[in-house]
Design a protein around this nucleic acid. Structure first.
Lengths: 366, 366
DNA sequence: TGCGACGTCTAATACGTATAAATTCCTGGC
DNA sequence: GCCAGGAATTTATACGTATTAGACGTCGCA
């Protein structure tokens, strides 16, 4: 059908034959960045011409086996990125990675872990799948620690989007500055007279959660408020954030403000909305009854939604920086690990108000 | 740091040395599916033990170099997929491709054309970029015909999502059955007494548009209505679908129903919504004043939106089928082209009603 | 004329795996 | 005791590329 009728993809040997040179020369012309100018102009052209005629494309596997570069950046996510309910959360990351990868002249290799089966993990099939790419961007909240540790052991270049730690050594990441952002949120609440601030944290002990807790404690300390451990509460399911609970916290602990971590899906915001909607007796008004702020932004953001007080992660920016960092790492012989933290932006919103006068100074009581 | 202190990853040779066998034996034990049982049980165990002790992980590059396949499927889009205003249109395709690729054991190579610059085209850098993948899924409305033709010339395996044609030969695609869906829509309108049906088609002469026009004509023929060429109208910009225009069409041509192609962005639906919102004199009520149906679904679909009468493309299903077809093609020595058409699902909606009695039979007049 | 230097190219090899072909070893049959 | 025949394992090779060391001329200069 086609001119040659052959099925096999052309290789450097084919080009060499056609151009009347050796395979080594072809390799030098095609991918010998530095050494490419040591070959004569006529042969240079001849090789390129032959390559074009044959429709040559380098074999990725062979190239990376040999240790060369493929101009591929991997993107591995520990959770499915595409399911609809989380899409708005991950979309900005995808966007940023895609954009910056293209800008840097790399194509993106999407390692799919979309099936829940374990056979799509990094070390599936007895090998490290990521290695076809020159380097890899990692993403996801529920990290598999073993795999991450193994990745650090081999010195495969990768950058995590989000701060992550493993015992086995330092890894590179681009994270959001949850500590400062949360601390600032606490400071703002304190300025408004709040002294009894409830912190609803995720149950899982991941780095983002630890950072927020750190910021919470720092913020309280800076405001001269002692930490009451009873006000740090693990929230297993956003649905637990019910009217009854909040009213209980207000009554029993004198809580006047709540800080809560949003989930990657819509459940938290749904729960909040549900609390606002109920009949007058069975609802909580924010901020009249209680101030509330989100430690991060809820995934989907339609204009109709309420403008919750919160801070917002620079997600696309984080992704872009991660790609830049990765490309940088690739350029260096030595793979030193690097860490970068990007500030969050504060969104004032309308769910935080001054503390009720009756509550001010309440923490002075025994 | 690690037990050996070496940096290099263990290979089959290392295992072989440790287990006192040859590298070939190791290969047979580890990945020799069928031939694995021809080796003795003791050696089998010894090899596995050695592999476990060394923490062996197969080198994917070497493996796929040997096999000729690298288990990568390309995804090339002729338009940026990630920009926000089109994201809901392309998302289901991404989802489907991603999902099925994973199910088939392939990873996805995302060729970014996100920068508008031409140097990210298929044939950038002198070669066919797509060729680093085993095969490729193509996507996008504004196809570059030259490149597509060139792709057909070389017999690089690819499948287009959406019906596409080139003069140079047959290509494989998975398309939506616009013809039948449009024809059915016309039939339904005819059943409701409509005889003067306006068809607003896209200006560009792409396959999806041609198919719809074909369905329009077929549907009219089946209903025994003669085609009035004045009722086929090219719509350059969705904003042109204004109240004035519709009122004009009703008055001048006796139009009682309109069929319109949606755009990939939100402009058409926005225009429709705007028409409904105006003051009573400057708006059109659907279906009271005029029935209207969309030949495809508008991109974003929030529950608040009006439930327009339309038909809906099985986008995720198309994507999945495309991947399946591609994998199938890869398995065959001969690359025959294949075509598959998937039916659309009809969404009754509420923007179509019976034709006004005064208009029925109007087409009998000269 | 001879000799080193330089410019241009090639031969050879390594990367880690899979597999066909060849070898060794063993067992049983005569 | 010798050989056919199979089971268990190894040897050898190929996959396509990158890279190093060296081959081959050619030129400049003494």
């Amino acid at each position: 059908m086609s001119s040659t009728g052959r099925r096999r993809r052309p290789t450097q040997v084919d080009i060499a034959r056609r151009a009347g040179v050796s395979q080594a020369t072809v390799s030098l012309v095609i991918s010998g960045g530095a050494a490419a100018d040591q070959i004569d102009e006529p042969t240079h052209q001849a090789v390129l011409a032959a390559a074009a005629e044959l429709g040559y494309a380098a074999n990725v596997a062979a190239r990376s086996l040999k240790g060369g570069r493929n101009h591929l950046l991997g993107l591995y996510t520990f959770e499915p990125v595409f399911p609809t309910d989380q899409r708005d959360f991950y979309y900005p990351f995808l966007l940023g990675v895609e954009e910056e990868a293209a800008a840097q002249g790399y194509d993106l290799l999407l390692f799919s872990s979309v099936t829940s089966s374990a056979d799509r993990s990094i070390y599936a099939g007895g090998g490290n799948r990521l290695k076809i790419a020159d380097g890899c961007v990692l993403l996801g909240r529920n990290v598999c620690r073993d795999e991450l540790a193994a990745l650090v052991q081999e010195d495969f270049p990768f950058v995590f989007i989000g701060r992550r730690e493993v015992d086995e050594g330092e890894l590179s990441y681009v994270g959001a500055d949850y500590v400062t952002a949360t601390s600032a949120m606490v400071a703002e609440l304190a300025r408004l007279g709040h002294r009894r601030i409830l912190y609803l944290r995720a149950i899982e002990d991941t780095e983002p959660t630890r950072d927020r807790e750190r910021g919470y404690r720092d913020g309280l300390a800076a405001a001269g408020i002692e930490v009451d451990e009873a006000l740090i509460h693990g929230l297993a399911d956003p649905a637990d954030l019910s009217v009854e609970h909040v009213q209980h916290w207000i009554a029993a602990y004198g809580v006047t403000a709540v800080l809560v971590e949003p989930t990657e899906d819509n459940r938290l915001v749904d729960a909040l909305t549900a609390m606002t909607d109920g009949g007058s007796a069975t609802r909580v008004r924010f901020p009249e009854d209680c101030s509330i702020a989100l430690l991060g932004d809820p995934p989907s953001w339609t204009p109709e939604q309420r403008d919750w007080t919160r801070f917002s992660l620079p997600r696309a920016e984080m992704a872009r920086e991660a790609v830049r960092m990765l490309v940088d790492l690739l350029g260096q012989a030595q793979h030193a690990s690097r860490q970068l933290t990007i500030p969050c932006t504060s969104v004032p919103g309308d769910s935080v108000g001054p503390a009720p006068a009756s509550a001010t100074g309440r923490e002075e009581a025994p």
